[in-house]
């Protein structure tokens, strides 16, 4: 493994462990209460629908069939909250690749090493990807285990497919933050623009289903390629996932090219 990748993984380690603990706690809490929901499905379905009327319901992903294993898993894990957490984790790690060390002034010394600038960005990106992958894999195992224990009756293959999408959407936004940071060197800018795109993208995809005025915009939302295929119910939306992956690759390439031609730390 390249030295810089190894070094960057070391820098990320504590943060990765922190996010893992947080996301795992969230998953354990929510998936462990499923049995009580299953035992009283009408009540909880009704409660969910009355708690989130109208457009709020759409924002929560429709809340259809929340008392079924698949519906519950989609609503509490794969719809909004866990993607939100994992995207935050990814964007934090993404900005720490270039923008944060540049603002701290620690990047300058790294740049005086005989490391090619492209190599520097790609190594940092690879370490970010590996760290995020570690979080995704551990949480996947946890969801599979909790789904089995709670008897959610969701095929394991569908959980893997949904989790892969979860990883990809976070990978996309983390790479976006990394790219914005590599292009500008500004952490706050990267987080604001990346976060803004994530929120707008989510709203457009979920509300766009019932609001015609914005539904044509759904194709620019990364969430469209994650949520529209309903992987928890239908398995791998391979084409959609490839779109996210392709967009991520384009972003990473942009990061390399932008960083290649810029003054650092000015």
């Amino acid at each position: 493994m390249p030295t810089l990748v190894r070094k960057t993984l070391g820098e990320y380690r504590r943060s990765v462990i922190g996010w893992l603990i947080g996301i795992s706690a969230f998953l354990s809490l929510y998936l462990s209460i499923y049995p009580s929901i299953r035992s009283n499905p009408e009540f909880y379905q009704q409660a969910a629908l009355s708690k989130y009327p109208g457009p709020l319901k759409d924002l929560m992903g429709g809340l259809a069939d929340i008392a079924s294993g698949s519906g519950y898993l989609q609503t509490v894990v794969y719809q909004l909250l866990v993607p939100l957490l994992l995207i935050m984790c990814a964007m934090t790690l993404g900005t720490r690749a270039i923008a944060v060390p540049e603002e701290q002034g620690t990047l300058e010394l790294t740049m005086t090493l005989p490391i090619d600038r492209r190599r520097l960005v790609l190594d940092r990106w690879a370490a970010f990807a590996l760290s995020l992958l570690a979080v995704a894999l551990v949480t996947l195992i946890l969801v599979l285990a909790l789904a089995a224990v709670g008897d959610l009756k969701v095929p394991a293959g569908n959980i893997v497919a949904a989790h892969a999408g979860l990883f990809l959407i976070a990978f996309f936004f983390g790479t976006l933050a990394l790219t914005l940071g590599a292009a500008t060197g500004k952490r706050a800018f990267a987080l604001a623009v990346g976060g803004g795109y994530a929120v707008a993208g989510y709203v457009i995809e979920t509300l766009g289903k019932s609001v015609d005025a914005i539904s044509w915009l759904r194709w620019v939302s990364p969430f469209h390629y994650y949520l529209d295929g309903r992987p928890v119910f239908q398995g791998w939306p391979v084409g959609d996932y490839l779109v996210i992956l392709g967009a991520t690759a384009v972003l990473a390439m942009t990061a390399v090219l932008a960083f290649e031609r810029r003054d650092v730390g000015v």
Partner: peptide, 26 residues
């Protein structure tokens, strides 16, 4: 060889490990 005028160093890594990393890259 270059020691910056204003050297910023951050993180929990020990100085010796950091220097070993610099040496490895070189």
């Amino acid at each position: 060889g270059y020691p910056p005028g204003e050297l910023a160093l951050e993180g929990r890594e020990r100085a010796h490990d950091f220097l070993t990393f610099m040496a490895d890259v070189r």
